[in-house]
Amino acid sequence: MEEVLETENNPGGRTVRKYLALVLLLLTLPHVFAQATVEKVVVDVYDSGYVRVTEVVVPSNYSVAVEVPLMSNDTTGLSVFDENGNPLLFEKNGSVLTVYILNSTTQFTVTYFTASLTSKKGNVWNLSYSFPYPVTIKLPSGAIVVDLSDVPLEITSSSITMPPGNQSVSYILPLPSTTTSSSQSSTFTTSTSTPTESITSTTTSTKTTRTSPPPATTPASTKSNTPLPSQTSGRTWFLPVLSLLAVITIPAVAYWAKNRKRPTRLPVSKDKLSEKLESLGLTEEEIKALLYVYDRGGKARQADVRKALGIPKTTAWRMFKRLEEKGLVRVYKRGKENWVELIFT
């Protein structure tokens, strides 16, 4: 058989060798051409904690196969389609997906489901991940965001786009009764065009099921229990935005409340203190420093006093050392900073 393949007069033997060489070449190409750009990543979060990830990928020119990062190792329902909706072959290895491009594909979409990105503690859900590209997150309807790991790149009425890297989004889902009520409201209002028509339709259906309904009671109860379409849609986008404002505002208010200067009633007035300091023969600079501390409630950072007077750091240190030896102030450490406190005798 080998003699037949190696015979120059046997063209079939040369053809077999060419096919074998081509197969070996195709097997090595995917490891060479493996560059792509993930243009868009969308994470749709469901009430159950499952998420659907959609990655839109643009391969480089003349690529035979590309490697695409996945957001999780544990995935189900994995599928890959090109821009024309044709399925593509792929091979998954952990969190890396190798997609084989058979034609001149300019774009393809990877879709999969996973439950490993979310966790729940009490009533708070947490979506956490690490990904090298920006991710657009679409939370369940009515979800309230309570914490963000980073400043979002973009916020819309239905999504939050987080920057690349390690990110997490904490949120709370509405109570089942609220969800059911909203669902019933939306189902009811879709069969009508305006609030007036909704009331009329309700009155008509009530008359067919009851013999003598009160003419004024049925429309009034329907109007009070059924939210208008504008109210329902407004509540959907308003809650996530309100919760995001709370995430930003609450820490700022807490920081302000912690660091604001609280007025303190001192044992002597400023005029009496000034007279006493002048009688002690202090320099003008020392008197200004002590009155500055007095205006701050009797305590101030040494660095603030130095900046207010415009004196060097060494000069301020020596001045407060002299004042401390005279029993007028007490210098102490708070954290990494020196503080000055007046001593009233």
Rank of each mutant, 00 (worst) to 15 (best):
P312F: 01
K270T: 11
V124H: 03
A289V: 09
A143D: 10
T226A: 06
T249W: 07
P132A: 13
P229T: 04
N9L: 14
L309R: 02
S193D: 10
T114R: 04
T106I: 03
F90R: 03
T180E: 14
P312L: 01
Y294A: 00
Y112I: 09
F344S: 02
V135Q: 08
E197D: 13
P219S: 13
R260S: 09
E197M: 10
V247T: 12
P227I: 05
G310F: 07
Y62K: 12
L22V: 11
T202P: 00
G77K: 05
G49F: 05
S128L: 00
A254Q: 13
L139E: 05
I248E: 14
L342Q: 03
R322A: 11
P227L: 10
V247N: 04
E91W: 15
E284Y: 07
D147P: 00
T15R: 13
S243M: 04
V268C: 01
G327P: 09
P251S: 01
V268L: 07
T7I: 00
D304R: 06
Q184P: 00
A303P: 00
V43Y: 01
I248M: 12
V253W: 11
K223D: 09
T200N: 08
T200D: 06
S157W: 05
L280K: 15
N73S: 14
A257Q: 13
V268A: 07
S185M: 02
E3D: 13
E8R: 13
S193M: 10
T315A: 15
L25W: 11
V331M: 08
S181F: 11
S212N: 14
E341G: 03
N126G: 01
S243C: 08
L228M: 06
T7M: 11
K207W: 08
G165S: 05
S274L: 11
G142Q: 05
G122H: 03
V16H: 07
Y294V: 06
T161E: 02
R322C: 01
V66M: 02
M71W: 09
T209D: 09
D304E: 13
I250C: 02
Q184C: 08
A316H: 06
W317S: 15
F113H: 03
V53D: 02
V68E: 02
N225K: 12
S224H: 07
P59R: 08
N9E: 15
M1F: 10
R296S: 10
T114G: 01
K288D: 14
N61M: 07
A300D: 01
P240H: 02
L139P: 10
P174V: 03
D295H: 01
L282N: 07
F33T: 15
V124Q: 07
T226N: 06
D74E: 15
T136Y: 00
P227V: 06
T156R: 03
R318D: 05
L323E: 04
P163E: 00
M319I: 14
